[in-house]
Design a protein around this nucleic acid. Structure first.
Lengths: 218, 218
DNA sequence: GTCTATATGAAGATAGAC
DNA sequence: GTCTATCTTCATATAGAC
């Protein structure tokens, strides 16, 4: 298992074939179908129908089902990472920073497409290991990397003391707290949708715990 | 989303058809195949071959592929829960209790079959929501319930103060810390196997963080 | 590039002998 | 109950016209 140091990692940008308008429609339809059914249960018929094109149009742009799947997941991961990177970190002390990051991450993670992407990527990881690693870099790695930078400031400001575990580990631990029960509940209760209050509660518990563990008692 | 209070929940015991020896072989073969390929990619041919029986023997005991899948996951969840319940909690203070529970949970969770079961259950949750909830009760819920009982002792002994979050939430938070990065890494890096030292490190980080957050500073 | 029509193979499930 | 052989359906992918 790799140590996987947290750096400002960059996803290999995937350039979906946008030469033709139809190619994009196929990609979008494939995204819908694959996220809904997973790789194996999805059929090219469903994609073809969802896109409103014929079978050979699909194959004109994507050599086969696997390649189309890879294109879909790559695009989703890229979008995922972009959204995470767009998080605004308003100044206002560590508590606010943690809450903001926690909320932003959970909102993406627990969204229908966030959950669906996780399900598909994790479920198909043995068959598509590259995609799984791409997902890790685009999601958990990116967000932890961002928080680690913020934590560095907080350390310098004397707000926090993470010397026992280190900056990167501390950031990772915070997101473990945020994600933990929230994601597990949503994944295993696919019919229920968490209330906003429930999400607030999950974030709040993570923030409380993290601050109790690492806040500098001046 | 349900509050899901932590009680000593009990799984509905599934009685696999053991009337005949062949029925058990089919179930075991199906377990192997489904955990390896998931529901959709697995075929009844694979199961039939793995079991060394003919096609109609499979259908003689299990009406169809879905029912066989349900039987497999139920059995795995039951075994999972049994193993968790078998954890010995040697006395020796909170730190030891936490480390013991963390290790036991991670060893099961990160085992090949533990990861495979998680992948399959989570991936197929939209299609088999009942199984997903069964999994939640057999895994995260059971282990958190057990730790919550131990924490109650620690609270009474004055070792720990969890009044800000509550007993159940504290137990859940601990396992979020334990599971978080460890499971994410293993799920997204299916080719790599974590070293024993790495597992120790994950548990240690969780214990350190939890104790810093909730240990009573006498 | 895009369509209709089709080839080819495989998967789930069953029939009927023993 | 268990087997071999088979039925039916459907999925991936291609051929050939426009």
């Amino acid at each position: 298992m790799k140590p996987t140091p947290i750096t400002s990692a960059c996803l290999a940008e995937t350039m979906p074939d946008c030469s033709n308008e139809k190619a994009l429609r196929v990609l979008q339809a494939a995204t819908t179908v694959f996220l809904k059914h997973g790789f194996s249960a999805a059929t090219t018929d469903m994609i073809q129908r969802e896109a409103g094109v014929s079978k050979s149009t699909v194959y004109a742009h994507y050599a086969n089902k696997e390649i189309l799947f890879i294109a879909v997941i790559h695009a989703e991961c890229t979008a995922f990472a972009q959204t995470l990177r767009g998080i605004q970190f308003q100044p206002g002390g560590l508590r606010k920073t943690l809450a903001a990051h926690g909320h932003a991450y959970l909102n993406i993670l627990l969204s229908p497409s966030g959950l669906a992407l996780y399900r598909v990527v994790i479920g198909e990881a043995p068959r598509f290991p590259e995609l799984a690693r791409t997902f890790y870099l685009a999601g958990p790695h990116v967000i932890a990397s961002m928080l680690a930078e913020q934590l560095a400031n907080a350390v310098q400001a004397g707000e926090v003391d993470v010397t026992t575990v280190g900056l990167d580990a501390a950031a990772t631990l915070f997101f473990s707290l945020v994600r933990g029960e929230a994601q597990m509940q949503c994944l295993t209760h696919p019919d229920a949708t968490p209330s906003a209050a429930q999400v607030d509660q999950w974030v709040e518990l993570a923030v409380i715990t993290f601050l109790r563990a690492f806040k500098r008692t001046v």
